[in-house]
């Protein structure tokens, strides 16, 4: 627990300084990366959160080809996102809604890592820009408020953080789940619960917000539809997204790839 508090304090101090300096670059660590431009958050990514490309293609909104075209042609100039709008693939509103949803989702898991032993991001790659390009910059203070609110929502829904990292095990019900549950988004989560996948793996498979999926699982547990693990149950292994890795331009910093290699080396 100490590690979380310490890490949180460090990242808070670092972010405060970067905002004051109106810095541009990527603050990164194992839990993911926050991209700043002029001291505002313009992009965030986390290995446990479906990225914009996966959200758009998993839902069928964009073909894999349209997405890769934007990444290949717009990526080198850091404007893959706006290229989708210029080419008429997406409306400006769709781009903004999808990107903001992914940004706040990833920022939550970067600033509030699932694995409490994970260090908060502490390395700042000054000048780094993300190939997706800025869409709608968000003040860091607003992101922090949102992270606090989301923690509170999870806690109020069902105070069992072990659920976030454990396989989702449906409770065999004598009767089918209530109609309201079957038809709601949490119904899709319940249907995808196979007793093996964790909430973020289900989110990855569905191309759905990872935070919303955590919240669904907590609520399903509160309703007795998902088994609540015993307190202190260790996660079986670190959760990984089921989504395929997005293609990135050759000159983009391949932070996650490097981290995976390091993780693999450390595991030897």
């Amino acid at each position: 627990m100490t590690a979380v508090v310490t890490g949180g304090a460090v990242v808070t101090a670092t972010l405060d300084r970067l905002v004051r300096e109106r810095a541009t670059g990527a603050l990164h660590g194992r839990a993911g990366a926050l991209y700043l431009a002029d001291g505002a958050l313009v992009h965030a990514e986390s290995p446990v959160v479906p990225d914009v490309g996966w959200r758009l293609t998993a839902s069928g909104r964009l073909s894999r080809e349209s997405w890769e075209e934007a990444v290949t042609e717009g990526g080198p100039d850091h404007r893959a996102g706006s290229l989708l709008v210029e080419r008429g693939r997406l409306s400006r509103g769709e781009l903004e809604l999808c990107h903001l949803s992914a940004l706040f989702d990833a920022a939550y898991f970067v600033l509030s890592p699932l694995d409490g032993s994970q260090r908060a991001p502490d390395r700042f790659l000054r000048g780094a820009r993300h190939w997706f390009g800025p869409v709608r910059p968000v003040p860091v203070a607003a992101v922090r408020r949102e992270v606090r609110r989301r923690r509170g929502l999870l806690e109020r829904a069902w105070p069992c953080p072990e659920l976030d990292v454990s396989p989702v095990v449906p409770v065999p019900a004598p009767a089918p789940a209530p109609r309201a549950v079957r038809r709601s988004p949490s119904g899709a989560v319940l249907a995808a619960a196979d007793g093996v996948r964790t909430p973020t793996q289900i989110a990855g498979a569905l191309g759905r917000s990872a935070f919303a999926t955590l919240l669904d699982v907590r609520r399903l547990a509160a309703a007795g539809l998902v088994r609540t693990p015993a307190p202190g149950t260790p996660p079986p292994r670190r959760a990984r997204p089921a989504a395929p890795a997005a293609r990135v331009p050759a000159d983009a910093p391949e932070i996650f790839l490097l981290q995976r290699i390091r993780d693999a080396l450390e595991a030897l």
Partner: peptide, 10 residues
């Protein structure tokens, strides 16, 4: 409610 084909709740 704003209906999108990708995941959203807006």
């Amino acid at each position: 409610y704003v209906a999108t084909s990708f995941d959203s709740s807006v």
